[in-house]
Amino acid sequence: MTVGDEARQALERQRTVEITTIGRRSARPRRIETWRYLAAGRYWLTGSPGSRDWYANVLAHPEFTLHLNELDLQVRGRPVTDPDERARVFGEIVPALDWAGSLESWIAGSPLVEIELG
């Protein structure tokens, strides 16, 4: 089994993940817990509409550590700003979340980062 296969299997099992980003101003590691999502056959980080420090950190420093139960992976975040891609991805994620509110608000105001496993 390759590291990529092992990482994908771990991501399939684990929705709640921790990530360590590098602070955009402090340049210090920042670790938080968040959820990963699966859409279009790929893995994503997002959150309800609003600003997020982790997102600003990924914009400044795209490489971060994804902590899974069994693995710590060095990954790259690809921020998604294209409106059509955002609509497609959020169109899969948001309807499955009964607490999420409107799809339009997520498209307009939520961070969206693809987790690139390398």
Score class of each variant (00 low, 15 high):
108 A>T: 11
17 V>H: 09
98 D>T: 13
73 L>R: 00
110 S>I: 01
96 A>L: 11
66 L>C: 07
116 E>D: 09
62 P>Y: 03
46 T>R: 05
28 R>D: 11
117 L>R: 04
10 A>E: 00
102 S>L: 04
26 S>E: 05
52 R>S: 14
106 W>Y: 15
83 P>K: 10
52 R>N: 13
14 Q>G: 00
4 G>E: 15
116 E>W: 00
112 L>I: 09
71 L>T: 01
98 D>P: 15
89 V>D: 04
1 M>C: 02
27 A>F: 14
39 A>N: 09
72 D>L: 03
9 Q>S: 00
114 E>N: 03
79 P>W: 02
104 E>G: 07
91 G>N: 03
84 D>T: 15
34 T>V: 15
9 Q>M: 05
26 S>P: 06
109 G>H: 11
99 W>Q: 10
49 P>I: 10
109 G>N: 09
94 V>I: 14
107 I>R: 08
13 R>I: 05
118 G>Q: 08
58 V>Q: 03
115 I>T: 01
28 R>I: 00
44 W>G: 06
18 E>G: 09
87 A>H: 15
32 I>K: 04
18 E>C: 12
84 D>F: 09
80 V>P: 00
103 L>A: 12
31 R>E: 13
82 D>F: 05
56 A>F: 12
1 M>V: 09
65 T>V: 15
64 F>H: 11
2 T>M: 06
86 R>T: 12
25 R>G: 05
16 T>I: 15
104 E>F: 02
84 D>N: 12
71 L>H: 04
26 S>T: 15
111 P>G: 11
70 E>D: 06
45 L>Q: 03
79 P>A: 10
84 D>H: 11
112 L>E: 01
102 S>R: 10
114 E>P: 00
90 F>K: 08
50 G>F: 02
73 L>K: 03
21 T>H: 01
81 T>Q: 13
31 R>C: 13
21 T>I: 09
117 L>M: 02
6 E>G: 00
63 E>F: 05
112 L>G: 08
44 W>M: 08
17 V>C: 07
37 Y>A: 03
106 W>H: 14
5 D>K: 11
75 V>D: 08
17 V>S: 00
79 P>L: 12
69 N>C: 07
56 A>D: 13
77 G>P: 01
42 R>E: 08
95 P>S: 07
